[in-house]
């Protein structure tokens, strides 16, 4: 796991075309985050290609101890990106799967390994792409607000993109980013971990919600939907039990947050 390697990554010049790999969670549960990713990239003059054959990166099975099942799903994704364009992933976790773990998953087959390694080299997490390739700078058209940033563990420790997420938020003049206690600690999601050991997961996510609430942030922003669903789902359940109607700790994908603020759409 390489923070060190993530920082040393070489980035290409701004391309004319990119692929968008939206992830299964965004496709099914949070499509607006995918559309806003598209908006952010197209505004920069980039043609965005969305391969319709995309399903899931295979991480759920890979992390749960089912490598054959993960490989079958990952194989479906390997054939989607025939042009040498960068592949933009609005999730640090899925990007890390493709960037770091695809070569391990296909290590035993030379031909597939070569394809996986070639693809891995041009997989970029959205925020690292916006910072290092696009040099993102758009005027903040939103009103003053206070947010907290949560970075997924794979984004932080495998992609190093906690720094790029923070850098993007710092370009927004009217946004005050507050820092929660133990910011680097996991939110307790861990994919199937949350289902297998719900009590431990609950203990971890409850602490995360408490630390976010303590900052007074109006919302939590993240580049990973899995963490967002976990954190805001827990907070909403607490609201529900307390009989509070509008959610007191809403969340937003960083793509939507950036797009709305820089295009003047109120959140």
């Amino acid at each position: 796991m390489g923070q060190e390697s993530a920082r040393d990554r070489a980035y290409p010049p701004k391309p004319g075309d990119v692929y968008l790999y939206s992830t299964c969670l965004i496709d099914q549960f949070s499509p607006e985050a995918g559309l806003d990713t598209l908006n952010l990239l197209e505004r920069e003059g980039i043609r965005v290609h969305f391969p319709d054959g995309q399903t899931c990166c295979g991480q759920p099975a890979y992390n749960s101890g089912y490598p054959d099942e993960a490989r079958a799903v990952a194989l479906q994704q390997l054939s989607l990106f025939s042009q040498p364009w960068p592949v933009i992933v609005p999730s640090g976790s899925c990007a890390a799967m493709m960037h770091h773990h695809y070569p391990k998953l296909f290590a035993s087959d030379q031909a597939l390994l070569a394809r996986a390694t070639e693809l891995a080299a041009r997989v970029f997490e959205l925020t690292e792409f916006l910072v290092h390739v696009i040099n993102f700078k758009q005027p903040d058209r939103g009103s003053a607000c206070t947010v907290a940033l949560h970075t997924s563990c794979h984004a932080r420790r495998e992609m190093g993109s906690h720094e790029t997420s923070a850098a993007l938020l710092s370009t927004l003049d009217n946004v005050d980013v507050v820092v929660q206690d133990r910011i680097e600690e996991c939110c307790g999601f861990g994919g199937t971990f949350a289902i297998r050991y719900p009590e431990i997961s609950e203990a971890i996510v409850s602490d995360k919600v408490a630390s976010l609430r303590a900052t007074g942030a109006e919302r939590v922003v993240s580049a990973d939907c899995g963490c967002l669903f976990n954190i805001t789902g827990r907070a909403a359940k607490q609201d529900e039990l307390a009989g509070i109607a509008p959610p007191t700790l809403p969340g937003e994908h960083i793509a939507s947050f950036l797009w709305k603020r820089t295009s003047g759409i109120p959140s």
Binding site: S22, D27, Q28, P31, L38, F229, G233
Partner: peptide, 25 residues
Amino acid sequence: QGAWTKCRTALKPAPKRLRDLIRER
């Protein structure tokens, strides 16, 4: 939704998938 909703609200699928929204657009 089983273990998930013991301490969280339920996950709700969006009425349209991203691929549908992109196709429409």
